[in-house]
Design a protein around this nucleic acid. Structure first.
Length: 431
RNA sequence: GUGCCUGUAGCUCAGUUGGUUAGAGCGUCGGGUUGUGGUCCCGAAGGCCGUGAGUUCAAGUCUCAUCAGGCACCCCA
C-alpha cells in the first residue's frame, strides 16, 4: 500500500504556476484596497467557538466548521469566515482606533462541506470592512471598491451584475406588510434565499408549506410574488416606500454611478448578523451560477464583545469564484516565472563562474544555475520546460572574455554581450 | 448529510452484442557523436482496467457492495 499524493479533500496544492496566479490575484486585491485607504491586518486561524455562535448562523457553526477541543479543554474552531475575528479585534481596541477605520485581510478559511464547482473546503478570501460610518456612503464606497477590483482585473460591466437589497426592508415586508408570524417569516426568508434555484412551481409549493392557512387566506403568496418580481424599487407597493430602509436603498442606488447595479428583493445573505443593506455580485455567465462575492452592513457584531456597537459594512470575496470568473471571461493573464535567467554551465566551472553570477544578482536579476554538469542541450531543455525565456551559457571562453552568450529561447536569438548589455536587455524585457 | 454521474498507463481518453498475451495521443526516459532547447526521426519504460465479492465456460465490459472523484441540493465565497 502506498501513500496518496492527493491533497486533502476540497483543499488545494499550489505548485509554482498556481501560486503565481494566486500572487497576482492578491496583488490586485491589495493594490485596489490600499488605493481606497484600507490597511492590511491578520488574525489567528484558530478562534474560540463562542465568537461564531451568537450571530453567524447555526448551520455553519454546527455542521460546517472544523472544530476540536484543545489540550486545555477549550472548544476551538478553524475560522470559517473572517468577520467575527475582525469584529473581535476592533472591539478590543475600540477606544484607541481612529474612525472611519478601514481594514482588509486575505485569510485562508475552512468549511466542512462537500466540494463542488466554486466551493471547496478551503479558500482565500479578501475581506474588506469599514467601521464607524453610519451613512450609506460606507456601502457606496465598498460597492465602488468592488467594482474597481473587477475593472482592475480587466472585466467590464457586462460580465457581472451587482445586486443590492436591505435586510431591514425584507423584515418590514415579511412582518409588517405581509404580517407573517415569526415562524413563517423565518421560513419564507430562507425560501426567498433559494428562489433563484427553484422553478416557479417548486417555489410556490414550498411557499405554500411555509405559510399558515390564515396567511394564505390573506393573499400572502400573491403579494409576495408581486414584490419578488420587482425589477426596481419603484415597482414596490406604495406602503413600503415611506420606510427609512427604502430610502436608504434608494439613496444608495442614486449614489452609485454604475450601470450594472440593481435592486433584487431576493438577495438575502446567509449570515444572521447582517442588519442593513446587503449586496452580492453574480457572474453573468451561466457557467458560474452562484454568488461570487457578497457583503453588507452588520452594525451589531462589534457590540457583542461588550463594548459600544460600531457601525460596520464589509464584504468577502473568495479566490475560487474569482478564478472561475476570470477563466470564463478569458481574463487570466500570462504570468511569467520569477526567474529571469537560466544559467547553463559548460563544463565543471561552477567555482570559477560564481563571481560572475553574483555580479548579475547584484544588478537585481533572478538567476537559476544549472548545477548538474549535463550536456548543454539538456540544460537548455530544463530552462525551456520551466518556461524561462533567457539562458546564458558560461564556459571557459566566456570567463576569459567577460562576455556571455545570451540566448532568447522564444526566437532562438543568440547574442554575445557584456554584463551591462545583458542587464539592460533582460530588465527591459521583464519590467 | 441527500441525490445523480464517473473510475482503463503520469495526463486525456478508446476498448465493438462479455471471447485469446490491454490500445492511442500527450508526457517521461534513451538514442540521432564531441559547447546549444522547442520541430523531425528511431526506440524504451510505464496498467492486478479504483477495491472486494457475485453471475458466467469466459468479465475492462453484466450485478451488488465499498472507496475515490465530479456535479447538483443544503449552506455559502
Amino acid at each position: 500500500m502506498s501513500l496518496s499524493t492527493k491533497p486533502y479533500k476540497g483543499a488545494r496544492d499550489f505548485y509554482p504556476e498556481d501560486k503565481r496566479l494566486q500572487k497576482f490575484i492578491f496583488k490586485v486585491w491589495r493594490q485596489v484596497a490600499e488605493s481606497y485607504g484600507y490597511e492590511e491586518y491578520d488574525a489567528p486561524i484558530i478562534e474560540p467557538l463562542e465568537i461564531y455562535l451568537a450571530k453567524t448562523g447555526s448551520e455553519i457553526v454546527d455542521e460546517q466548521t472544523y472544530n476540536f477541543i484543545d489540550r486545555g479543554k477549550r472548544q476551538v474552531v478553524i475560522r470559517p469566515e473572517m468577520t467575527p475575528s475582525v469584529s473581535r479585534m476592533v472591539a478590543a481596541k475600540r477606544q484607541e482606533l481612529a474612525y472611519p477605520l478601514r481594514l482588509y485581510s486575505i485569510p485562508n478559511l475552512w468549511r466542512y462541506e462537500r466540494p463542488q464547482r466554486g466551493r471547496l473546503r478551503e479558500h482565500w478570501q479578501l475581506n474588506v470592512d469599514i467601521f464607524g460610518v453610519k451613512s450609506i456612503y460606507a456601502e457606496v464606497e465598498l460597492i465602488n471598491l468592488t467594482d474597481a477590483i473587477f475593472k482592475a482585473f480587466g472585466a467590464n460591466s457586462t460580465m457581472y451584475e451587482i445586486k443590492v437589497n436591505h435586510r431591514g426592508l425584507i423584515n418590514e415586508i415579511l412582518k409588517n406588510y405581509l404580517q407573517l408570524s415569526q415562524n413563517s417569516a423565518y421560513n419564507v426568508a430562507k425560501l426567498i434565499d433559494r428562489k433563484a434555484k427553484l422553478d416557479k412551481a417548486d417555489f410556490l409549493d414550498q411557499l405554500d408549506q411555509s405559510l399558515l392557512d390564515s396567511e394564505k387566506a390573506n393573499k400572502v403568496p400573491e403579494k409576495l410574488l408581486s414584490i419578488l418580481d420587482s425589477k426596481s424599487l419603484s415597482d414596490l407597493p406604495p406602503a413600503l416606500t415611506k420606510s427609512d430602509n427604502f430610502k436608504q436603498l434608494k439613496d444608495l442606488l442614486s449614489n452609485l454611478e454604475l450601470d450594472n447595479v440593481k435592486y433584487d428583493p431576493s438577495i438575502m445573505r446567509g449570515f444572521d448578523y447582517y442588519s442593513g443593506i446587503v449586496f452580492e455580485v453574480f457572474d453573468k455567465s451561466e457557467n458560474n451560477n452562484r454568488s461570487m462575492m457578497g457583503g453588507g452592513r452588520y452594525d451589531g457584531l462589534v457590540g457583542l464583545f461588550g463594548v459600544e456597537p460600531i457601525s460596520t459594512v464589509g464584504f468577502g470575496w473568495g479566490d475560487v469564484t474569482l478564478v472561475n470568473f476570470l477563466k470564463e471571461h478569458a481574463l487570466l493573464p500570462q504570468l511569467k516565472p520569477e526567474t529571469d535567467i537560466y544559467v547553463c554551465l559548460a563544463g565543471d566551472i561552477y567555482t570559477k563562474a560564481k563571481d560572475m553570477i553574483s555580479a548579475l544578482r547584484r544588478e537585481g536579476l533572478n538567476l537559476a544555475i544549472d548545477l548538474t554538469n549535463r550536456k548543454l542541450g539538456d540544460q537548455i531543455k530544463s530552462a525551456d520546460k520551466k518556461g524561462l525565456n533567457y539562458v546564458i551559457i558560461i564556459g571557459e571562453d566566456e570567463l576569459k572574455s567577460a562576455h556571455f552568450k545570451l540566448k532568447t529561447l522564444k526566437n532562438k536569438q543568440e547574442l554575445n554581450v557584456n554584463l551591462k548589455e545583458l542587464v539592460n536587455i533582460v530588465k527591459h524585457d521583464s519590467h
